[in-house]
Amino acid sequence: MKSALRIACSRSHLQQVRDFVRTYLSSRQLPEITVNQVVLAVDEVVANFIIHANGEDETQFLDLKLQLDDHELNVEIADNGDTIFLPAPHQSPDLRDFIRQGRKGGMGMTLVNRLMDKVEFFTRGNHTVCHLSKHLA
């Protein structure tokens, strides 16, 4: 079953995204921990698109699609802005360095990579797409 949502690039829409994902997954009798993990991962990627790729430009929008087939959840987040946003390849940061430096950001994609089975960023035309997948037992 597939479901889709379009939002403007504003942080004010993040709660709508979280509610959308939670409602979609909760109706499938999944464990609450799994639902929370996916909600957190999607929220982080959407926030990155809104803030870093689109500068919170509300004239731009994101399309979010969720699809669950058998036991495989696929999430697609497509950016419709004019800027290509491809994060650097994932490398686990040194947590000791983060603590020593007092850094408060930069751990989001590490978390997403740990919560999801597969995380891919690619371009489609002049737009950026993030595909997340998770096997659900």
Rank of each mutant, 00 (worst) to 15 (best):
Q67E: 14
Y24T: 04
L64I: 08
K104D: 09
T34R: 07
R11K: 14
D117L: 10
L5I: 13
D117G: 14
E32W: 11
T59V: 00
G105P: 03
K118G: 04
L115N: 06
L30G: 05
K104F: 14
V75E: 03
D117M: 12
L68C: 08
C9I: 13
K2P: 02
L132Y: 01
I33Q: 15
H90A: 09
D79F: 03
M116R: 03
A47W: 01
M1D: 13
N36S: 11
F85V: 02
Q29D: 12
M1F: 00
T59G: 10
R22A: 15
Q15F: 01
V119P: 02
P87R: 08
I7T: 06
N80W: 09
G106S: 00
D57C: 06
E58S: 11
D117W: 11
L86I: 13
E120C: 13
Q29W: 10
I50K: 03
V21E: 03
V46I: 08
E120M: 11
N48P: 10
K118V: 01
K65F: 08
N113R: 10
S12P: 01
M109A: 05
V129Q: 04
E76M: 11
Q91R: 07
A4P: 00
G55S: 14
L95I: 12
K2N: 12
L86Q: 08
L14T: 04
Q15E: 13
Q37N: 14
Q101I: 11
V21G: 03
K118I: 04
I51M: 07
L132V: 06
K65E: 10
D97K: 15
R96E: 15
L64D: 02
V42T: 07
H52G: 08
L68D: 07
E120K: 12
L86C: 11
N113W: 02
A88T: 14
L30M: 10
P93K: 09
E32T: 15
Q91I: 07
G106A: 13
L62M: 01
K104L: 13
V42D: 04
E56M: 06
M116Q: 06
L95H: 00
S92A: 15
D63V: 10
D70T: 00
T83H: 08
D70M: 05
A8Q: 11
Q67M: 09
D57I: 01
V129R: 02
V112N: 01
G102P: 04
D82F: 08
A88G: 06
L73N: 00
L40K: 05
I99E: 13
V112M: 06
E44T: 07
D97I: 09
N80Q: 15
V35F: 00
L73V: 02
D63G: 09
G102S: 09
L5D: 08
N48R: 06
M107T: 08
T23C: 13
V112K: 03
S10C: 10
G108C: 00
D63Q: 15
D117E: 15
E56H: 08
M1R: 13
P87N: 09
F98T: 09
H71F: 09
D79S: 03
S133H: 04
R28Q: 13
G106R: 04
C130I: 05
V119Q: 03
L40G: 05
D94E: 11
N48F: 00
C130K: 02
R28D: 07
F61G: 07
A78P: 03
C9W: 02
H135Q: 15
V17N: 04
V46L: 05
H131N: 09
P31R: 15
S3G: 10
E76K: 05
L25C: 05
A4M: 13
D70R: 05
S3E: 10
E58N: 14
V75A: 03
